[in-house]
Design a protein around this nucleic acid. Structure first.
Lengths: 148, 148
DNA sequence: TATATATACATAGCGAGCTATCTAAAAGGA
DNA sequence: TCCTTTTAGATAGCTCGCTATGTATATATA
């Protein structure tokens, strides 16, 4: 039973994601951001005052993962937590001035990384690439949630 | 400057790779394997007695990453290290009987995971998906090596 | 040959993902 | 109202990436 890794979608997905992450990391490190922090900031730049739970749903990571990411972001002065007005268990997460200031540069960095990765792909290929990834994600997400 | 994460190749690549990894993990955990161990075993099932350095090149991970993966594989009784006959710095890595015994089941698990992920894609779409990922990987790899 | 450089591997320390488990508050039901 | 269940979050402990650095052996050069 042969298994050629260069023809395995899973192997390629892992390899590709690592290259995206390290490329993005190099670009945003000067801004004081790490990749998961950037992804979280994307949601917060869009709308402030979310709870940890809301971020978990938006980014589709486990609660424990988000708890740690948020802790590092607080440590790094990117966010502040305030008591939730209605729910004593929850906290609302707000951006600091520092986080607001890096938005433009960080978004440019991410767009540049994406552009570099997709270099040499025709417009239609790019569209299809995003579509195929979305469909594959949907396949696996649905299958995963079925089991719970 | 808007940034829609569902249209960002990097975001999708990360999400997809996490789903592949957790799907594979669930399937091979009963065999006593973790995902990175499986990827390493794919090379060793193909050819035994490789050095750590050779595995680093084949899997395109950092040397320190491979050193840790190998240590866990040794701990778990999947490999044994023997002194390299020609080079006093290096070690040759050999499979244990245990590692050989799980090959067939592990390969089936990985193929099943890939098949599930690609469900609903036409044959031509699957081919193109692998091709697009390969080209994107090449883009980023070349760019990364340029800088060193 | 003696020294300098390059290479193979180990280790420390961090980010980011995961599962499992705990606490405290909220919500629901008897 | 009281008790049970659910939910929000924290924490411990693991894998697997990474960078940076140290050590010992090989190799190359003066």
């Amino acid at each position: 039973m042969e298994m050629e890794k260069t023809k395995s979608a899973g192997y390629l997905a892992n390899h590709m994601a690592r290259l995206f992450a390290s490329g993005l990391q190099a670009r945003i490190k000067p801004l004081g951001l790490a990749p998961a922090q950037f992804m979280t900031l994307l949601e917060l730049w869009n709308r402030d005052g979310l709870t940890q739970k809301e971020l978990v749903v938006l980014l589709d990571v486990e609660q424990a993962t988000m708890a740690n990411t948020i802790r590092r972001m607080e440590r790094d002065g990117l966010i502040e937590r305030k008591a939730h007005p209605k729910d004593g268990r929850a906290q609302s997460i707000f951006l600091t001035e520092k986080a607001r200031q890096v938005e433009a540069d960080a978004v440019i960095a991410a767009k540049t990384q994406n552009a570099e990765a997709l270099e040499g792909l025709a417009h239609a290929e790019r569209t299809q690439f995003l579509d195929l990834m979305s469909r594959v994600i949907t396949n696996m997400r649905d299958r995963a949630s079925e089991k719970s």
